[in-house]
Design a protein around this nucleic acid. Sequence first.
DNA 1: TATTGTTTCAAACAAATGTTTTATGCGGGT
DNA 2: ACCCGCATAAAACATTTGTTTGAAACAATA
Lengths: 221, 221
Amino acid sequence: MSTIDQTKERLLEAAGRVFAERGFRSATVREICHAARANLAAVNYYFGDKERLYVESVKRAHSRRQEAAPMPDWSPETPPDVRLRDFVLTMLKRILGDPQCDWQAQLMFREMQQPTAACRELVEEYIRPHFELLQAIIGELSPAAMTDQQIRLVAFGIVGQCLYFRVAEPVVRQLVEQSEFAQVEPRRLAEHITRWTLAALGRQEYVLPECVTGQRPKGAT
Amino acid sequence: MSTIDQTKERLLEAAGRVFAERGFRSATVREICHAARANLAAVNYYFGDKERLYVESVKRAHSRRQEAAPMPDWSPETPPDVRLRDFVLTMLKRILGDPQCDWQAQLMFREMQQPTAACRELVEEYIRPHFELLQAIIGELSPAAMTDQQIRLVAFGIVGQCLYFRVAEPVVRQLVEQSEFAQVEPRRLAEHITRWTLAALGRQEYVLPECVTGQRPKGAT
DNA sequence: TATTGTTTCAAACAAATGTTTTATGCGGGT
DNA sequence: ACCCGCATAAAACATTTGTTTGAAACAATA
């Protein structure tokens, strides 16, 4: 019993990494089994075929990511701007995560761009609730004149900003210097995006205090 | 001579579509040749091997996209907010394009996420100049207190918002209703993102006139 | 110890796929 | 008429790859 779970577990872990790096089709069962220190036939033994292993590994990656960075449960009187900041930070933590679990996010992005029929349910069960939560938060922060459609666009904009740093990471890394890229991390980005959003909504000015940016203002002597 | 270019051309076109849809590894030479109405050996005859065909097709897709939606050359006295709007609109046109040339954008995104060594030059020759142009425009619109690092974050944010609708298209399509998704098109998005940015910079209020959104304000009778 | 169910392993198979080869048709120049 | 360069076509080749198979190793149990 225990040995079953061990190899099955190693297989899921290794499959996640390999699928994330190579994509479903390009990943080979042989590479996965080798990475999992398992025999070639193990995949078919435990999962039937390559595709079911893929589905399982995607689900696994997602749940791991979610429990690694859970959404905080706010008290009823938590102000919406705090909730916005928490939401963005949580999202960024899940997306950028530590490089150790990097593949989990990568794997989900692949799935988002070319959804497998089996995994499309992820959107309904997981993404849509989060997206509606974000819309609700923005709605509370917005003037009454904002339409639902506008709120949706704002929500997409926030998500897009978060995702960009992960999805186009190689490009970002090449565009900014190494030292600056190292500072692209969840807390700083969440602060920027939150302030940026609040400023656009007319809630406050967009000014990042020096202690956060670690840089002097332009033109300062 | 003319026939040479014809099949070579068809090969490049077909390869672009197939590579965009399936990725380099998953795309088969047979499928490409079939789509191009060419013989199986044509790829090796004209390009040597599959990989060089891929590189050529990426370059081709990129230049096609660029000439399809060129950056306007502004007169010196064009105000920065107009330039921002133009920049965003041009970018969105290239990204969202008409569904006919959809694969060109798709292909470049694949390349951005998993850069081939041969194609990494695209960033230097093409993306970096555009990125610096965007930074310059934002710089003109920003208060002097903004640091270069903050400007870069803002620029990444704008690019991220634009890319999101394309990169996560399947998800967006599933999240919003069909009728609303049809309205996700360059002009409307450019208007939203530009106004949003200007509002965050304290340049103007973020209010989209009804004639643009086509929706009545929340709570209107 | 013998038995039974489970897991691992090495080998083999069949299909897919990138590449090469060889042959065929075609046009123009000598 | 003959030859030569070039484009196309069909077949063949060598790998790769997902999957299957049958035996061996192992653990638990009676």
